[in-house]
Design a binder for these strands. Structure first.
Length: 286
DNA sequence: CTCCAGGTCGTTG
DNA sequence: CAACGACATGGA
């Protein structure tokens, strides 16, 4: 990796297979906003980051080398060879060539486990702009103030210690609607230790999926999102309405049951299912 | 006003 | 066990 420090900024040069806008706007994360073309402000891992891509350079503004090495390199999946992943997918399935072309700079972000779980419980039966709103309400009310930028306060995602005190009414005030009781149950599971990230990491993906599905309001789709975005299980293949539609159009040409789609993806994309899913999602939305 | 949205639950046949 | 409506909220 070609890294340069200039003042308080860190610049990564000669990037390949990376597009910041695609990565942030492909629906995997919710806590970011666009400052200008290819320049974003985002909060993750208890930090505020201003980041810009100019051609094949990525600029991390006001970022220490320590934060880059320990947080952002991993968050943006910069050590993964996406060329190899794309080649694998295209060899397995020629249809993927066009699909990947549409979002060829997507990276899968390494998000916080609790944030991914809470966010994707909120996501059910909601549109992305509204998901973002509910999450922002939650963070503004219960997160810690990180920093002010251009007169706007930016907050961290609440910790489980903060979340565990919230009632169903508190979540409803954040406009979570009928999901409020699900969020309470998720937080109870997390704070009681009945679900612990460290213990999940020891399990196989199917075992984690079963465990997550014991939370009220968490089904197969949300669990797979948590596996992929919050626990780095790159074989996870979450199937939502968009993925269902695009797979039916590209591969089946007719209505197809979830189980069929799921096993098809497993056979076709294997350990790289998560990447395939992300390319498919982006393709189907553009 | 009606319809529907990154799903899941509880209830029916 | 497959099918179906309910569920809060807000935007089209």
């Amino acid at each position: 990796m070609n890294l340069v420090e200039i003042g308080n900024d860190i610049i990564i040069k000669d990037l390949t297979d990376f597009n910041l806008a695609q990565t942030l706007e492909c629906g995997q994360c919710f806590r970011f906003s666009k400052l200008q073309d290819n320049k974003y402000i985002l909060t993750a891992k208890n930090k505020l980051l201003i980041i810009e891509q100019i051609e094949d350079e990525l600029i991390f503004y006001d970022t220490s080398l320590n934060d880059f090495n320990h947080i952002w390199k991993d968050y943006f999946d910069l050590d993964t060879d996406y060329k190899e992943i794309k080649d694998y997918l295209i060899v397995k399935d020629s249809i993927m060539e066009d699909v990947i072309k549409s979002g060829s700079g997507i990276r899968i972000l390494g998000q916080d486990f609790v944030e991914a779980l809470i966010s994707f419980i909120i996501s059910q039966n909601k549109q992305i702009p509204q998901i973002k709103q509910v999450i922002e309400h939650l963070c503004t009310k219960y997160g810690a103030l990180l920093q002010q930028y251009n007169g706007i306060n930016y907050y961290s995602f609440p910790t489980i210690d903060q979340l565990k005190t919230l009632t169903e009414e508190d979540f409803k005030e954040c406009k979570a609607g009928f999901r409020a009781k699900y969020l309470v149950d998720a937080c109870a599971n997390l704070s009681s230790g009945s679900i612990k990230e460290k213990e999940l990491l020891e399990l196989t993906s199917p075992e984690i999926l079963d465990k997550l599905c014991t939370i009220k309001g968490v089904g197969v789709k949300v669990s797979n999102c948590v596996l992929l975005y919050g626990l780095k299980r790159k074989e996870a293949f979450p199937i939502d309405v968009w993925i269902k539609r695009v797979m039916e159009n590209l591969y089946f040409k007719e209505e197809t049951k979830l189980e069929i789609l799921q096993s098809y993806a497993k056979e076709k994309f294997g350990d790289y299912g998560g990447y395939a899913q992300q390319y498919l999602f982006y393709y189907s939305r553009t």
